[in-house]
Nucleic acid binder design. Structure first.
Lengths: 118, 118
DNA sequence: AGTAGACTTGCGCAGATATGCAAATATTAG
DNA sequence: CTAATATTTGCATATCTGCGCAAGTCTACT
C-alpha cells in the first residue's frame, strides 16, 4: 500500500500538530481574567501571591485562587508554597516554546499539504 | 517623574503583551471541535467547504458552520464564497505570526520585569 | 419557474463555567 | 493555646456555550 491516497492517515507533521493543539492550554487561556493574570505575572517578572495577583482583576480573591489552580493544571504557572502564602510563577519557558512549537507545526503541516496538492 | 516606582504603568512591552493577549483568539481556540477543524484545515493545505470540514468532527454540519464563523470572526480562517459553497481557508500566516508575537512579548515582559527587580 | 444542494440562523435544551459568600484548612505570630 | 493571616473549597446562582433540528437564504441546474 503506497501513497496513492493523499495522506488522510497519520503523517508525522499531523501528529505533531495534534499534539501541539491540546485543548487544555487554550481552555486555560480563553478567559479574560486568566489572561489578565498571565499578563500581570509576565510583567512582574517574579512570582506573585494570590492576594497580589488579585489586584490586577476586579474579582474576589477566591475566584483568582481557582483561576490560578486551573492555570497550574494547564502548566501555564507553577506554584511554590512559602509559609502560609503560595507563590505563583509564570512558566515562561514552557509557554513560549509551546506557542512557537505550535506555529512551527502549523506551518509544517500547511506546507506539506500544499506540496501534496501540487 | 523618573522611574522611582517600579513600572505599574504602561511600559512598552506590557502594552505589546496586552495586545497579544486579546481574548478573542484564545476563545476561538478553546473548543476541541474548533481545534480539530484548525488541524484539519492546516493538514489539508487548502480551503475546505463546510461539508468537507464537517467530516473531521462528529457533529452536525450546522454546528460546524457556526464554529467556522466564529473562527472567521477571530481571524483564524478566511471565507471565500464560490457559487453555493463557502471555502474556509486557514490564515496560516496571521496565526503563526500572532503566536510567535505572543511568545516574544511574554519573554520581553518577563525579562524586563526581572531586570527591574535586579 | 421549480427543484435540489450548500450553507446559515432561530430556537430550545442540557451541560459547563465563573462568581461571591461563607466555611474549612493551613501556617504564622503573640 | 489562641488569634490572625493566606489560601482553598463547598455551595447556590447566574450566565455562557455547544448541540441538533427545522426553517430560511442563496445559488445552480433543468
Amino acid at each position: 500500500m503506497t501513497s496513492r491516497r493523499r495522506a488522510e492517515f497519520p503523517s508525522p507533521c499531523r501528529t505533531a500538530l495534534d499534539e501541539s493543539l491540546e485543548p487544555e492550554l487554550f481552555q486555560a487561556l480563553c478567559d479574560p481574567v486568566r489572561l489578565s493574570l498571565v499578563a500581570h505575572l509576565a510583567a512582574s517578572g517574579r512570582a506573585l501571591t494570590v492576594t497580589e495577583a488579585s489586584q490586577c482583576c476586579g474579582i474576589h480573591f477566591s475566584g483568582v485562587s481557582r483561576h490560578l489552580a486551573l492555570l497550574k493544571r494547564a502548566g501555564v504557572v507553577r506554584a511554590e508554597k512559602h509559609g502560609r502564602e503560595v507563590h505563583y510563577r509564570l512558566e515562561v519557558g514552557a509557554l513560549t516554546s509551546t506557542l512557537r512549537g505550535l506555529a512551527d507545526a502549523l506551518e509544517a503541516c500547511w506546507d506539506e499539504g500544499q506540496r501534496a496538492r501540487a
